[in-house]
Design a protein around this nucleic acid. Structure first.
Lengths: 355, 355
DNA sequence: TTGAAAGCGCTAACAG
DNA sequence: CTGTTAGCGCTTTCAA
């Protein structure tokens, strides 16, 4: 029951601790027979390496810190899931810190994680500017990958969705569906999601309607703002509301339903991110799905490369992954035959189970 | 830049490493002047304790493992948030493992976390029976607290919501609103949320309607089941659907709207948990809010007590916290004056911000 | 291919 | 109150 150490395994298998270490770590060639005996002894004794000792000696804890602005942001749980799986697959454990959207707390968590000898850091910065110092300092000490949001140019390797491509998918879809009077319900600020989606809308909407780039209402990424934004733009009688994320779209949809407006008949509504709620609202929301699994895989890969070494001098990488359009009922009128009674197919909706 | 060790601090402050250790850890009284010099030296050198070395020596990593069935379960992000905050407040870091509802993966993660010398474990078991062996074994090695779900009697300390009290809140509310033909849309299985809520419904519903305890449809905790369940019970023309969780309630609501049924006019719908989506659906769903902050605080407190020691022999504690009823539009007809046009007050809905 | 030995940075006896 | 000393369990030279 008590902890079995390398010495115990060495004694039982009749060789030295050094040999046992080599067998178990596979760092150097060891005689086949010896190796077998060692492995057998380790097995029967139930040997478990002591990571603290290993870390002290080898200066590597096999641990990665994950710093988030807010785990309750509905886009993050799926990302955290994929990240932990990708990192665990590489034999690493994940230390989680939720900084509650506070850059000061974020800096403290980062310092604490560095003190705990994390091998690397994965950070979704809480703030475009105010996270920069802490992130830059941390990036000088360990490999660090930024995710989802930016934090100034070339501060560290980064992985994020291609917001411009995503917005283009939405606009193409709306154009193909014959929508012409388009409005954008977005968010203020310089954060990448807000700024890039805004800019991509402005760039792409002119092709639909010369006046569209000016039909813009800016607030924050919330349901409340989505509700309020409808009232700001409804007088222009748009036939499509392009929302900068799914929460805004949900709010817009609620307000439209309250006003008795037919969606998608009178107006189409689109979101961005594909959070679980986008599939569950009625009508389901057409949105841009972030490639969460690929985002996580890329982040893990970048970390792995830097950890493997030999990349010290290589330039920062900024990886952008192309998202996918998920078409649901909020942008496409149902075929006439299925108007009543049938359950709408929740297009590719992930099944949510909970208790 | 290079790592500063206790020796460096000792040399600069002119005393022994032991003294420095004492000052910084506060384990023993140290002369005021010496302490000052040590602290000053540590400060100017930028000393950061090496947690790996500390862990190796003191057999305590200051780290707690958190093992979850599925972070994407919409009830867990808020719980994870509160747990990490509560534990960080106690100076502990959190190692996160998401086992994807697989008890085998769960056992592996638990073993890995133990190998990493976590001081304690917080486990939301993936399965009532199949998680038991791994949990029991782990509980023999470190303090372990079970959360949210059960895992056999007296396996470890546990913290969960009082499902019986929660269901009683719902039934009282419906009775006061004059509802009499009540149906339960629940889940099969022996997991505590399913079984306890089912039993509490059966016990409480008889007071409303002698036939109500038999008006039960059982599936799983999903939106899909919520939709299907309506069709199973609708023939009985209930005036209230009591759902075992919010996802079932969301599905039920969707199906009812599709059938053109007025909610809450013809039928009231209630949920359980108060996940974010419950506030965002239209109408908002009346539900039982789990006391997430208190749940987390209790779990942290139990862990702290066991870690402080002196409790080795004390019996397992099973703490049940009383939830709160959150009344929204799905169970209460709007006052006549506010029927049209105004934005519904999203009763206490947490503001969700995302990008 | 293997073993002996030297620590990694820190804490905890044990003296003084 | 403070210093000396002995390791925690492991990896990694250096010799054999």
């Amino acid at each position: 029951m008590a902890d079995v150490t390398l010495r115990d395994v060495a004694r039982v298998s009749g060789c030295s601790v050094a040999t046992v270490s080599r067998v178990l770590a596979g760092t150097r060639p060891v005689g086949a027979e010896t190796a077998r005996r060692v492995r057998e002894a380790a097995e029967t004794l139930g040997y478990r390496p002591n990571h603290a000792a290993r870390a002290l000696r080898s200066r590597s804890t096999g641990t990665v810190g994950l710093v988030l602005p807010q785990i309750t942001n509905p886009f993050y749980p799926a990302l955290v899931r994929e990240l932990t799986h990708a990192l665990h697959a590489g034999g690493r454990a994940v230390l989680l810190a939720d900084c509650d959207d506070d850059p000061v707390a974020e800096a403290e968590y980062i310092a604490d994680l560095l003190g705990r000898q994390v091998d690397a850091l994965l950070v979704i910065p809480a703030h475009e500017e105010r996270s920069r110092d802490a992130v830059t300092a941390a990036a000088a000490r360990v490999p660090l990958v930024l995710m989802d949001r930016g934090c100034g140019p070339a501060v560290a390797d980064s992985v994020a969705v291609d917001n411009t491509a995503g917005m283009a998918l939405v606009l193409d879809h709306l154009a193909a569906a014959g929508r012409r009077r388009v409005c954008f319900l977005g968010a203020t600020g310089t954060a990448s999601a807000a700024a890039e989606r805004r800019a991509a809308y402005a760039a792409g909407a002119a092709a639909l309607d010369p006046g569209a780039p000016d039909q813009v209402a800016l607030g924050d990424f919330s349901v409340e703002w989505g509700r309020a934004a409808v009232d700001e733009v409804w007088a222009a009688r748009p036939d499509a509301l392009v929302c900068a994320n799914d929460l805004i779209a949900i709010g817009a949809l609620q307000r439209l339903q309250q006003l008795g407006v037919d969606v998608p008949g009178e107006v189409a509504v689109t979101g961005f991110d594909d959070i679980p709620m986008a599939a569950l609202s009625a009508p389901g929301i057409t949105t841009v799905r972030q490639p969460v699994t690929e985002l996580a895989a890329e982040a893990a890969r970048l970390l792995g490369r830097r950890l493997a070494g030999g990349e010290e001098g290589s330039p920062r990488q900024a990886i952008r992954l192309t998202p996918e359009l998920v078409v649901r009922e909020s942008s496409v009128a149902r075929p006439a035959g299925t108007a009543g009674g049938t359950v709408p197919a929740p297009g590719g909706a992930a099944s949510l189970l909970a208790d």
